[in-house]
Design a protein around this nucleic acid. Structure first.
Length: 276
DNA sequence: CTTACCTCCTGCCCGC
DNA sequence: TGCGGGCAGGAGGTAA
């Protein structure tokens, strides 16, 4: 499940491996991947465009095409591969881009949950319809304790729900939400209105420390996720609670528990993480 | 406003 | 060994 660090890894890898290149031909094999505009329009407009730069916003990838912006969300299992046209086609490749450097950029997505958008380029990110409900990126300087307190203190939701809410902080998914709760020593079901400004300062610090650590190790791999070019992240070795049910807590040796919070599988240490 | 539930999909895991 | 059922999960949608 690509979250902020994995998407960052994909962006950096594609930028490094492809650089500036032109899309000469596009083929869509599963229509529902294309969220906007229509499949026909998407193909028509993207062919002939040059990828000028690569960006990330929350969990979204952005390809700057000059006059247009191509935006992708990998959801659960989306991956990009750069391959020779002669290499065998995997059955889970749903969108194919021929490039002027002779290679193909292939979008692979086992569950077909990913989405692609193609818009006229806008000045600001929030001008794109797919970002209308997306808040600041986790590394955006506008996220500070005051901002989080103002946004979250009136809410009745739990800490884990708040971390997963892309309208407040963009980029955190199920894995890092669990890791951040552990780092804070807070139970994932702690109500956010119990948190003080000081807690939010700590939250921002731990969130960025964990996300940066994951970016440095190339993103996390759990079951399905590999960044483009088959490079696996190695952060899974450093996960402290996520997917560790029945394992010993590294701090206190208590067994890690798994519960469900807002329909998400949630892992935590019952000793280190207390409700407030 | 909040919560609950449904949809999209496939692979995996379980029980028989 | 195989088959059917249940389940996970990011985000958007709708209903209550």
């Amino acid at each position: 499940m690509p979250e902020l660090p994995e998407v960052e890894t994909v962006v950096r890898t594609l930028e490094h491996q492809l650089g500036t290149c032109t899309i000469t031909y596009c083929m869509v094999k599963w229509d529902n991947i294309i969220a906007y505009p229509s499949v026909t329009q998407f193909i028509e407009k993207i062919q002939g465009k040059t990828i000028r730069s690569y960006h990330r916003y929350g969990k979204y990838l952005l390809f700057d095409l000059g006059d247009m912006m191509w935006i992708c969300h990998l959801r659960m299992e989306g991956k990009f591969y750069i391959q020779e046209a002669s290499e065998p086609m995997n059955k889970h490749v749903h969108v194919i881009f021929d490039l002027d450097n002779g290679k193909q950029l292939r979008y692979h997505d086992t569950r077909k949950f990913g989405k692609m958008y193609l818009y006229e380029k806008q000045e600001a990110h929030h001008a794109y319809p797919c970002f209308s409900n997306i808040g600041y990126d986790a590394f955006d300087e506008r996220i500070d304790a005051t901002y989080l307190y103002r946004k979250l203190h009136p809410k009745k939701c739990t800490l884990k729900q708040a971390l997963l809410n892309q309208e407040i902080i963009a980029g955190i998914g199920n894995i890092y939400a669990d890791e951040i709760c552990f780092a804070l020593g807070m139970h994932p079901e702690t109500k956010v209105y119990r948190l003080r400004k000081k807690d939010f300062e700590q939250l921002i610090y731990e969130m960025r420390r964990i996300l940066l650590g994951a970016i440095r190790s190339g993103g996390t791999t759990i079951r399905s996720y590999t960044s483009s070019l088959g490079i696996d992240g190695r952060f899974q070795l450093k996960l402290k609670v996520h997917m560790k049910k029945g394992g010993e807590c590294q701090v206190c040796k208590t067994l890690i528990k798994k519960i469900t919070v807002a329909t998400r599988g949630t892992y935590y240490c019952p000793q280190c993480q207390k409700r407030r």
